[in-house]
Simulated scan of single mutants.
Amino acid sequence: MPVIQYIQDNAPKMREIFEDLHANPEIGFQENRTSGIVERCLRDWGFDEVHPGIAATGVVGILRGKGQGNRRIGLRADMDALPIQEITGLPYASTNADTMHACGHDGHTTMLLGAAQYLAATRDFDGTAVFIFQPAEEGLGGARRMIAEGLFEKFPVDEVYGMHNQPLSETGLARIRKGPMMAGASFFDITIRGRGSHAAAPHQSRDALVIGAELVGLLQTVVSRNVDPVKPCVLSCTQFHTGSAYNIVPETATITGTVRYFDQAVMDLVATRMREVCDGLALAHGIAIDLDLRNVFDVLVNEPELSDAYVAAAADVLGADNVSDQGPLVMGSEDFADMSAKIPGAYINVMHGGQAALHNPAFVLDPATLPIGSSIYARIIERRMPMKDAA
């Protein structure tokens, strides 16, 4: 079975929605326009229930199939954009300054809407499909907030599925990996509290800039000189802010960054060494260094049976030769991990071409992936909750 014909016939309309979402991106927990479009579509297509306002801007839609089965399957898509100025030159490029769908969440939302329209029209499944449109995936904890607000208590599901586009490849392929697939992540903020002085009298200071530079170098040895090299882990310092004038030795500095890992014991080791490095450097210079290190993403783990089910659904659309369960470990993170930590789940990558990576101001999602993603979402519902006469 190729792309579902109904979805292919409606691809132009889905393309319009995608381009509109792309031109009007919204940062996490501010997706008011986006969630309004989602809500309106679900209501227009005759969903049994539509629940907006979950985790501020999240939307959940409930669709019951023709059968009377009790099984419930969740499908999730993220909706938020990134604080990036777009440089693609697309005719539907972002009209919001310093805001861009550089990760393709506009495409994910459109894919799930495409599946929603088809399944609402056919309802050829035995059970209930729960459509989860999630805000604030990009490090702001949208999934955790939805869960904390009772997502799975109010809308229980037996299993849940997510999807992401993956550029720099070839359109028409899909990849998944059983077990751990995407890294967990902790973010850190470090504040160095030194002593300022005139730049002509640095001996009177405790120079936060120099100490900060030393600290960045030391942090970059935490993984390379402490973690077993066969256990993947990355520590990256990504921001360093200090100073205010040419003739002032700065009193304070801030350093931020992230740690990515697959093994909690590795993360615990890195956390311990980061604290020891900060405390030791503070003691050496007679200053204070404060470290705030916090978990933001869990490790994303694909349940093996559900991974097989996803492969089968994708193979229905793309052909078995174009779908693999041997995808790579990915050091990037995804807060779908919080959902699949609560409910058995699986997460697949839909591949496509392009010259720019995710989170790049030149990123372009291939619109040809839209009906592919929609069809895979729809097939997982039809396969996992088949009508009795189709079983």
Results as ranks from 00 to 15, higher is better:
P2Q: 11
I4D: 11
D9S: 04
P12S: 04
R15H: 15
E19H: 11
L21I: 11
E26H: 00
D44E: 14
D48Y: 12
V59C: 02
G65N: 09
I73V: 12
D78L: 12
A81M: 00
I84S: 03
A97M: 04
G107Q: 12
T109P: 05
A115Y: 12
G141E: 11
E149G: 08
G150E: 04
G150H: 13
M163C: 05
M163A: 00
Q166D: 11
F187W: 04
R193G: 00
G194K: 04
R195G: 04
R195V: 14
R195I: 13
A200F: 13
G212H: 10
G217F: 03
G217E: 14
Q220N: 15
R225V: 08
V227L: 07
V227N: 06
S236E: 06
P250Y: 01
D263P: 03
A265C: 03
V266C: 03
L281Y: 01
L283C: 08
V301C: 07
A309T: 11
A309K: 15
V311A: 14
A320Q: 14
V323Q: 07
L329Y: 10
L329S: 00
D335I: 15
P344V: 03
G345S: 05
Y347F: 15
N349K: 10
F363V: 06
S374P: 00
D389Y: 15
D389S: 15
A390L: 12
